[in-house]
Design a protein around this nucleic acid. Sequence first.
DNA 1: GTTATTTCGCTACTAACCGTTGCGAAATGA
DNA 2: TCATTTCGCAACGGTTAGTAGCGAAATAAC
Lengths: 189, 189
Amino acid sequence: MTRPRSVSARNKLVAAAAEILLHEGVGAITAEQVARRSGVAKTTLYRHFGTTDALVFAVVEANVAAIKPPDTGTLRGDLAEIHRGYLDVAIVQQSRELFVWMVARSIEDPANRELFRRARVQPRGPTVLALQRAIARGEIDPDVDVEMAMHLIQGPLISMRIVDNSEVSERDLDTMLDMTVRALGAGHL
Amino acid sequence: MTRPRSVSARNKLVAAAAEILLHEGVGAITAEQVARRSGVAKTTLYRHFGTTDALVFAVVEANVAAIKPPDTGTLRGDLAEIHRGYLDVAIVQQSRELFVWMVARSIEDPANRELFRRARVQPRGPTVLALQRAIARGEIDPDVDVEMAMHLIQGPLISMRIVDNSEVSERDLDTMLDMTVRALGAGHL
DNA sequence: GTTATTTCGCTACTAACCGTTGCGAAATGA
DNA sequence: TCATTTCGCAACGGTTAGTAGCGAAATAAC
């Protein structure tokens, strides 16, 4: 080992990519653009990340803030907070575009599949915690399939917001949570 | 009006695109490929469809077979059949890729947004019918928000199959339907 | 049947982008 | 010091979208 990769070059690339992502969307990310705006050579970009896709995933991974897990005392309250957290993301259009982009790229390239999987671990945390507390509280069946519960909780929001691009009103959220919580059997035991 | 657009040329383009879509996936669709395989000039493709995206949506629209709506006598039974219908699509990987592609393109271009919306009308039919019958039967609340019910029914499947790329076993389907049906309040009235 | 108009097919073109190569210069671990 | 690797730069090959120009063919209208 003689000379390590320049950390500063890497940071500049991630920062520039994040900038473009935020202001122009993921469609505007090209190797040349990122290189120009970061002041780092395009060749260096490829040496560090291999592909532009990997760079974008790196930006996402660096920005998946650990959403502070809510603890309202009820499953419904926790899920409401979590959903509001997703909906309140400032750059709504951007996040929708980015989410779909990640799914698409994870289909096209197996390498991206793993990167996408890792990017989704953090965001799932709060929901898993909320479910565990609900179980501890005796609010829902302790033998609930947590994986399936995740899909039941997140699926409707994905279908509505991401696929259909519908606005989710406070009233919609209410209806959705009523159904979801009932699905999980809360209040049945 | 002097000479109409050649219907045969259009059909050849759609057929060739469908062929490529089926065997190589949506990523392999390029104007030049479609032109070559259809024997129709690339310029003619653009004259007919404007963009390659519009051609792909035309293929989808031509192939969204009206899924025969099941009628098993219970909401759960109907939904099970509908879900199995989606999962049994022969070209599973292709349909996943195509679905995500459509969502992505509908975000990128407003023109595609409308095309995607139209492509989704047909597939929703059976589910809406199943819900209406369940209401008529008194199986679920007659004031149910049908739009939201759609998201609740389709969302988990989308989250699991499309986003996560997980296999959906017969057992998973069972668990999912238990939760969904309970969410809709079946058996509560 | 003639004619005006439009489409069709062809070739060539511009423009954008990905990812690579080859090079000299600079940095750095040993 | 010095061997090794990275960095920045410029240029390149390959692919694709969409367009331009043109002669030939089709067809609606008369």
